[in-house]
Design a binder for these strands. Structure first.
Lengths: 201, 201
DNA sequence: TTAAGAAATGAATTTGGATTCAATCCATGG
DNA sequence: CCATGGATTGAATCCAAATTCATTTCTTAA
């Protein structure tokens, strides 16, 4: 028994794992998943390609984790925007604005998360996170219905639909970068969503 | 000059081309684009794989054409639903119902057209057709705004958003086949869309 | 120091389908 | 019937990127 993993080694290994994830994230944020080839990730992380496989069984699992890390952040940001002062309309407004502004701030990453063609297994993560966004919104919509602030409706369908609105309506601004129009598009999207839930004007 | 293409040959070649497209379409409608391998398409069309390449330069171009053929049909169906009697609300209602019912009737195909992970070049077609759906809806929304039937709004953003609603809200029903709930989901989606455009209740 | 076991390396291999192309078949007009 | 040139065939080839693994380099504890 001449070797046993020490805290020191553990720490370095954790560091390597993080470095790989960050390199992948950087590449995805730059050129999407298509730019995150294993050789590129390895180079970015300062390791050999083979090393990646000591930390992630396949590229797809690495991608899935990158996807989750980034999406989780977005879900939490949106959730954070829903708590606090204000009625349901105001809180929904905040949540939508949060999502939109974050997406527009980091467009390449947002595109990768929202619409870039990816492997089916990564697409499955995407689906899961769309449901996560929807759950955040559903709670809020449900609350608004109960309080009489929103129209009676199937809150689940509505929440899912709002996620669709966000994804689709942002696609244009994400792809064709037109700085001028972005602000107004964001306002239009939010206004539409508020009408959709039947928020009192 | 012992050979020149005759009408007879032309006809047979056209037939082969159609057979290839139909075989591809059948496979896509069955198991999505992932099921439409060149060998499978060739087998379905009753030709050798090499023959496909005398009619389509690459698999991707074949897929793109299959995608266009199918999508074009949907756009036209939706457009047809918008013409005729009724106010804008009723016509919009018809258009949405048409899209939804057609998608639910042919779920595997709808999934392939709406959300299946595909090659970027096919994804580009998808984007183009989403814009085509949006244009149909935009016209209608614009008309409703002018007539005072709908709320003032950016008709382009609204139309794009409605396309997003249709895609996202249908994903669930398309994937997890729950016959019972479908009818009510369709109604919920339409109701939400009508609220979104600010149609008078 | 050293033996034992991990971890890292990166060139070589694998892979799963699309794509090619030499050989063969067919249609045409003379 | 023949010569010409297009059409068809499908086994062999290609491809690009992920993945492997024999070798080398570290780490540890005795």
């Amino acid at each position: 028994m001449a070797y046993r993993e020490t805290a020191q080694v553990r720490a370095r290994k954790d560091g390597v794992r993080v470095a790989i994830l960050e390199a992948a994230r950087a590449l995805v944020g730059q050129g999407g998943f298509r730019a995150a080839q294993m050789t590129a990730v390895a180079a970015g992380a300062g390791v050999a390609t083979g090393t990646i496989y000591r930390y992630f069984p396949t590229q797809i699992e690495l991608f899935a984790e990158v996807f989750r890390d980034n999406s989780q952040r977005e879900v939490e940001a949106m959730l954070a925007a829903t708590v606090g002062d204000g009625n349901c309309t105001q809180r929904l407004n905040r949540a939508l604005a949060m999502f939109i502004s974050r997406a527009l701030r980091n467009r390449r990453l947002a595109y990768a998360l929202i619409a870039e063609p990816v492997d089916p297994q990564v697409e499955a993560e995407r689906l899961r996170y769309r449901q996560a966004y929807a759950m955040v919104l559903e709670k809020l919509v449900q609350e608004g219905i109960v309080s009489g602030e929103f129209a009676p409706q199937d809150a689940h369908v509505t929440a899912t639909a709002l996620v669709g609105v966000l994804g689709e309506a942002l696609l244009g601004p994400l792809l064709h970068s037109v700085p001028t129009a972005r602000e107004s598009v964001a306002d239009s999207i939010i206004a539409l969503c508020l009408r959709a839930v039947g928020a009192k004007a």
